[in-house]
Design a protein around this nucleic acid. Structure first.
Length: 331
DNA sequence: ATCCGGGTCG
DNA sequence: CGACCCGGAT
């Protein structure tokens, strides 16, 4: 099964399409955070505290009331019950449907936070989750199985390594034309399929390093695939949205400085230092959708943003950039 | 009409 | 850091 995912992954590594999981089967048993991150100091918080809803940071806490119930959430309901915000787990791939969202309030273990985390990060996440509930971001509806290129491959039975290696590159390339860089990707997919057949029994490798060894698979896709295909999150999948938004929020810094990060890998490492591991996987679809709709690369819609009161970058770049005077270079 | 962005490789 | 491609924004 995960092979199809790899093909898709390779295909879409630089497009907006994102893989979605079909089954939400069992989860990998998780170790305690202390075990996972030895050396990271932890602080206990008192549960069951109530807060003023008018304050953004309170919203997160109210959400944590340990009420267990199942409800249907519509946009209308949302307005009535500010209280209904899904746990971040519910933003895992495929779990958020566009108009109607089923969610289960869970008893969460978010009473433990790491030292070094930005003060308001939980409130920020909660605010973003609220904005994401409409499910109108492309990432919610244009999952990879709906993408034209994948459908075309699928019709030809080409989501399969044996079939792929027997197909010539030009044919492959033509089929995946809808995606960018299709010629390179056709080549990569063929090469990867061959390796998968020879060394991994026709499946994709299940380790980060083996994935990274495949041409065309970089950190972003490798971490995504480990999370989604193997349900074994090894790191945060940092794409351009996670990178940009993390910096706008002041969540990440270059090692030993308080400067913004300049590469996705810096962002990943910086984020992983404080973001609880439970959130590593869902943070990607959450921020991607947010980045596609509100916190856009240029002219972010800060006036539409529910956390513009606590975002350090709010309205900082909303106005059209001062048309810097064109430098006329003396010839 | 042009330009820019995006993940990865070389 | 350019090349790969094309969609989308300007």
């Amino acid at each position: 099964m995960p092979l199809a995912l790899l093909a898709r992954a390779a295909l879409f590594s630089s497009s907006m399409a994102m893989p979605t999981t079909r089954s939400s089967s069992s989860r990998v048993p998780r170790a305690s955070r202390a075990e996972l991150n030895p050396g990271v100091k932890e602080v206990k918080r008192e549960p069951g505290v109530s807060f003023d809803l008018s304050k953004p940071e309170a919203v997160a806490s109210v959400k944590r009331k340990n009420v267990k119930r199942v409800l249907e959430v519509t946009e209308e309901n949302l307005k009535k019950e500010v209280d209904i915000v899904p746990a971040i787990e519910d933003f895992r791939y495929g779990k958020v449907s566009p108009s109607l969202i089923r969610l289960e309030k869970k008893v969460r273990a978010s009473s433990v936070i790491k030292v070094g985390a930005p003060e308001n990060w939980e409130a920020i996440l909660t605010g973003i989750k609220s904005m994401r509930l409409s499910g109108e971001a492309p990432v919610d509806t244009k999952g990879c199985e709906k993408a034209a290129a994948v459908e075309r491959l699928s019709e030809k039975g080409l989501l399969d390594p044996d079939a792929i290696v027997r197909t010539d590159e030009a044919t492959l390339a033509n089929l995946i034309k809808p995606v960018g860089f299709y010629q390179r990707k056709a080549k990569f997919i063929k090469e990867a399929s061959k390796i998968c057949l020879e060394r991994f029994g026709g499946d994709i490798p299940d380790s980060l390093n083996e994935l990274l060894a495949l041409k065309g698979v970089g950190p972003k896709m490798a971490h995504l695939v480990m999370s989604i295909a193997w349900k074994n999150t090894q790191g945060i999948c940092v794409d351009t949205h996670v990178h940009r938004i993390s910096n706008r929020l002041g969540w990440v810094f270059r090692e030993g400085t308080k400067q913004k990060t300049t590469t996705p890998e810096q962002t990943r490492m910086s984020l992983e230092k404080w973001l609880p591991k439970d959130e590593w996987e869902p943070i990607n679809p959450l921020l991607v959708g947010f980045g596609q709709t509100i916190c856009t690369p240029l002219r972010p819609k800060c006036d539409m943003c529910g956390i513009n009161n606590i975002c350090p970058s709010a309205f900082k770049e909303s106005s059209s950039p001062n048309p810097k005077q064109k430098k006329i270079r003396p010839s």
